[in-house]
Amino acid sequence: MAGHESRPVLQFAPFQSSVDEGFWHRLSSLKLNKLGIDDSPIPITGFYAPSAHPQVSNYLTLLAESLPTEPCEQSSVATVIRGNRNRCSAPGILYNTNTLEGFHAIDKQSLLKAEAKKVWESIHSGEAEEDSAILSRFLLISFADLKKWSFHYCFAFPALVLDPPATLLDLRPASQYFSIQEAESVSAACNDWRNSSSTADVPFFLLSISSNSHATVRHLKDWEACQHGEQKLLFGFYDPCHLPNNPGWPLRNLLAFICSRWKLEKVHFFCYRENRGFADLGFSLVGEALMSVPQVERLMKGWEDPQHIPSAVGWELNRGKKVPRCISLAKSMDPTRLAISAA
């Protein structure tokens, strides 16, 4: 730790959740028609995109489509969703309890740990290199009170903790980091990446810039191939955060991944953000993070011993407090109320 005091700790803006009304409608019908009292965890899909307005962050959003479809429906829906640039999918898991008591009795810490373990294992197995979206894995616990049409819930976005934390050497708008020629090429390359349906929803990537200022966006798995000839190599991610001085949450697991997979101590990262759907380098950030040697060594130890899982954080706060959220949809779900409002 000595000598690091002068450098600020790299702080990440927590991911924020948003649940569409349709999600609760479909969960209710799944619960009533299919699940019954079966409370085994359900795999779900969340959606997010880079921040698109300088005033608001993007959210990890749950829609009706986040839940598995009921058997009567076609499975073709899932294939249509892919490639939508405004919906990068992140895998999640839902623990829906049968009682409010059960909801409050959930051991949140061990559930978070279990999800962090999955992230860690996907890094270890190389799976995260192939399908980077799994670095943004999330967890939702809920209690659906179908008598009162209210839903209690709490999100977690598990992040592996680097100990000691990474420090920040530099952070500035991308437009100040790149030369004018580089910036033009970076914008063009990112827009191509976002416009191609095969890469539009791939939220982590490599940005390489050759000595003649030509930028290329590549998949994470091409890291080896980028080791010669390139002048600059940055690790990019779709940043849901809008803040000018902090990168968003997805960078945390990306750094843990970089640190353990490629044993890098010093990395340049690129927080990709948009304006009106196009790359905005004045709004995007480029930073340089330093991860200390003991960190890398500690992670290396973990690398050799997959049983060792780094500690994790990530439960979402509700307006600054550690309380679950609650939404009442009686107005749109309660048949009595619907009948009254229709009369």
Binding site: S57, K108, S150, N246, K322, V323
Partner: peptide
């Protein structure tokens, strides 16, 4: 009809003191 959840606060053992988490982001929004 939304019950006040404050009564349930801190029943679990989640203690997240983490230097790398930016605190209370919704207050620093523009």
């Amino acid at each position: 009809d939304i019950p006040d959840m404050a009564g349930y606060e801190e029943v679990d053992n989640v203690i997240e003191t983490d230097a790398a988490t930016l605190q209370s982001t919704y207050l620093v929004a523009h």
